[in-house]
Every structure is written in C-alpha cells, then in structure tokens.
C-alpha cells in the first residue's frame, strides 16, 4: 500500500490533484476493506487493573482500578487465598445499584474498589497468592468474560507496616520505548 504511493511519482509525474487523490484513495480503501467498527476499548486487564498489597501480617488489600466508562459486577467478584485461608468472607463495599432489564437491580463498582482480605493461618514473612475472579462491562456496550487473576504478595513481619503493592498489569509502555 505504502510502496505504491511512494514509487509512482518517481516513474511519471502526476498532476498535484492526482498526487493528493491517490493517498486519499488509499486512506479510504484502508478504512473500508474489510470494515471494522471497533470503539477504542481497553483490554480487560487494563479496564480492570488488579493489584494487591499486604496491609499487615494478616491482612491483604485487593484492589481494582476500574477505568472511566467501565464497571464490575459486585456479585461476580470472588476472592481466594493460598496457602492461607480467608478468616471470613471478604467485606465488599456496597455497589451502585444499576437497574438491568434482564437481571433486575444489580450492584456495580466504578472507579477504585478496595477489598480487605483477612487471613487465617498466614505466617508473617511468607508469601500468599490471591486469586481474584471478576467480570465487568463497558458503557460502550460490551461485556468481558470472567477474568481469573493471581498475584503473589509477601506478608510483612509483625508490626513492620504495609508491604509494597503488586500490580497484575505493568504500566502501559509509551510509543517510544
């Protein structure tokens, strides 16, 4: 496509109109064959960026940074830890009620969601793997299949303060690196 545009003017001279019309034609051909309507949607791991952080030696905070225009379903969220167990059911904050014509009133989360996971049988200084299952949609009119993500985090020593956050998705690289 590009080659055709560049080589032509060397072989024979074109009128300025043809010189401009050609790349324009290529542009339209490129845009229409085959046509593909794809709103600029994020990959699920970027729309719902998952991270965990050890708050202390027996508590982990799991977080979803939900991109603007995206939401997660409260009832589809599930958390598990290993090798420790959860000391109790994770306390999910109340979501925003969304009325759904098929599923009735459902609770959804937008923005930043943080869930405390109380651990039982965890040893300070060891690592714990958090497994999170989530499912969400975009306001643009698409839904993502359930995602299962695992992150391993080191528990700090007793009284040592919170550990470093661990992110599932590295920050997006810029165009130039």
């Amino acid at each position: 496509m590009l080659a055709a545009v560049v080589v032509r003017p060397v072989r024979r001279r074109m009128s300025p109109i043809v010189a401009w019309a050609l790349p324009l034609a290529v542009l339209f051909a490129g845009a229409s064959a085959p046509a593909s309507a794809d709103p600029k949607l994020l990959e699920p791991e970027r729309a719902f960026a998952f991270s965990v952080q050890a708050v202390d030696d027996k508590t982990i905070e799991a977080r979803f940074a939900i991109a603007n225009g995206y939401y997660l379903y409260r009832e589809k969220l599930k958390f598990a830890v290993e090798p420790a167990v959860l000391a109790g059911a994770p306390v999910l904050p109340p979501g925003k009620i969304k009325h759904d014509e098929f599923f009735g009133n459902v609770e959804t989360y937008r923005g930043l969601l943080a869930v405390r996971l109380p651990l039982e049988g965890a040893k300070a200084g060891t690592t714990v793997t958090v497994k999170a299952e989530s499912q969400g949609c975009a306001d643009a009119g698409v839904c993502y299949p359930p995602q299962v993500q695992r992150l391993t985090v080191a528990l700090p020593a007793r009284g040592a303060g919170p550990g470093e956050p661990v992110n599932a998705t590295p920050a997006k690289k810029s165009w130039f690196n």
Binding site: M1, L2, V5, V6, R8, P9, A19, W20, L22, P23, L24, V26, L27, G30, A31
Partner: peptide, 12 residues
C-alpha cells in the same frame, strides 16, 4: 507523498 502514505497507513 511519503508523509501522506504513512498517514494513510496509520489511518488504515
């Protein structure tokens, strides 16, 4: 033309 071509390719 090269610039236009690159633009067209990017648009594609």
């Amino acid at each position: 033309l090269l610039l236009a071509g690159v633009l067209a390719l990017a648009a594609g």
